Amino acid sequence: MNRVLQPFASTQPSATWPFMIGSLLVALACLWLLQWTAAPELQDSGVWMGLRGGALCGLATAIGALPVLIVRSIPQRLADALLGFGAGVMLAASAFSLVLPGLQAARAMDYSAWGAGWLVSAGLMLGALVLLGLDKVLVDDPLDARRALVPSRLVVFVLAIMLHNVPEGMAVGVAAGGRLPEAASLAMGIALQDIPEGLVVAVVLAGAGMARAKAVFIGVLSGVVEPLAAVLSAMAMTVSTLLLPWGLAFAAGAMLIAVAHSVIPESGRHGHGIIASIGLAAGFCLMMMLDTALA
Rank of each mutant, 00 (worst) to 15 (best):
N2Y: 12
R3P: 02
P7A: 12
Q12Y: 01
S14E: 00
P18K: 10
G22Q: 06
S23I: 11
L24W: 06
L25M: 14
A27G: 04
L33F: 04
T37F: 09
A38W: 14
A38F: 10
E41P: 03
E41N: 11
L42C: 00
G50D: 11
G54A: 13
G54W: 11
G64V: 05
G64Q: 04
A65H: 00
V71C: 01
Q76R: 11
Q76G: 15
L82K: 03
G86Q: 13
A92D: 01
A93L: 08
S97E: 00
L98A: 09
L98M: 08
P101C: 03
P101N: 02
G102A: 09
A106Q: 05
A106Y: 05
R107H: 09
S112A: 11
S112I: 07
A116F: 05
G117D: 05
L124S: 13
L124C: 13
M125I: 15
L126N: 10
G133S: 04
D135W: 00
V137F: 13
S152A: 15
S152P: 02
R153P: 02
F157Y: 10
L159N: 02
M162H: 00
V166L: 13
V166N: 01
P167Y: 07
E168P: 02
G169Y: 10
E182F: 08
A183D: 07
S185R: 06
S185F: 06
G189F: 14
P196N: 11
L199Y: 03
V201F: 01
G209Q: 02
G209W: 00
A211F: 00
A215T: 08
G219I: 07
S222Y: 02
G223I: 06
L228G: 09
A230I: 07
M235R: 14
T238E: 15
T241V: 12
L242C: 01
P245T: 06
W246S: 03
W246P: 00
A249L: 06
F250H: 02
A254D: 04
V259E: 07
I264M: 15
P265M: 07
S267G: 05
S267C: 11
L286A: 15
M289E: 09
M289W: 12
D291E: 14
L294M: 15
